[in-house]
């Protein structure tokens, strides 16, 4: 009988009050946000380095992104999978900007990227690769590493070759992984075995006025 080198997996069931709230829908007219948004004061300085955020595909350098994004919510409306949401108020300055929360819905890597197409201010662009971050498998939480068959992450990964299974165990090929978060969303392990890390740095736009 299989003996695991890891501590036993325990499934914790949330109590009713722990259930997450759903996000409210954005409101916009022609790319202009009409919902109240807290003021942003970035001044001329770079924003303080905080936790990197999981931005939609094609997002440019975070500083440029924050300067350009009007929080209109058009990318949120355009996303056919409801994967893009407004950053919550607790994130302070960046509240209202578009992010992806893979635990609730992941980027499905649409072929035509309707989110990018909808972005009027041009902070989501198709000229850079749509890398949002990268996934890592936490082996001691992964069912396949606990001798129980599971192939869900590799089956559902929208990027061919990004998750490979050898001898029943999945590994992420970081060169191909876009960080879309599908594997995180679908992982059925008792505690999610996918660690999803947003990109720490993204390419910027050439500074045209310089």
């Amino acid at each position: 009988m299989p003996q695991s080198r890891f501590p036993p997996l325990v499934t914790r069931l949330p109590k009713p009050e722990d259930r997450p709230n759903t996000q409210e829908a954005p409101r916009s007219i022609n790319g202009i946000n009409i919902a109240p948004v807290p003021p942003t004061d970035l001044g001329t300085k770079r924003a303080a380095q905080t936790l990197p955020l999981h931005r939609p595909p094609g997002a440019i350098d975070e500083f440029q992104f924050l300067s350009g994004c009007t929080r209109c919510g058009d990318c949120i409306t355009a996303c056919p999978h409801d994967a893009i949401v407004k950053a919550p108020d607790r994130l302070g300055d960046v509240a209202g900007t578009p992010i992806i929360e893979a635990d609730h819905s992941a980027c499905m890597m649409c072929e035509d990227f309707p989110c990018i197409a909808s972005c009027e201010p041009g902070v989501l662009i198709d000229s850079i690769s749509p890398i949002m971050g990268t996934a890592r498998i936490t082996e001691h939480l992964c069912l396949a590493h606990h001798s129980t068959l599971c192939t869900v992450c590799s089956e559902r990964c929208p990027v061919e070759g990004a998750i490979v299974v050898t001898q029943g165990k999945p590994t992420v090929n970081e060169n191909d992984c876009t960080g879309c978060g599908v594997c995180r969303y679908v992982c059925p392990a008792p505690e999610n075995a996918i660690l999803l890390m947003p990109a720490f740095a993204r390419p910027g736009l050439a500074q045209r006025h310089d």
Binding site: M1, P2, Q3, S4, P8, L9, T11, L13, L143, H146, S147, T148, L149, C150, P188, A189, P190
Partner: peptide
Amino acid sequence: NKGLLCVKGYHVGG
């Protein structure tokens, strides 16, 4: 099962 479960078994409480 000596402590092992399948994916359904881990979620049987749900």
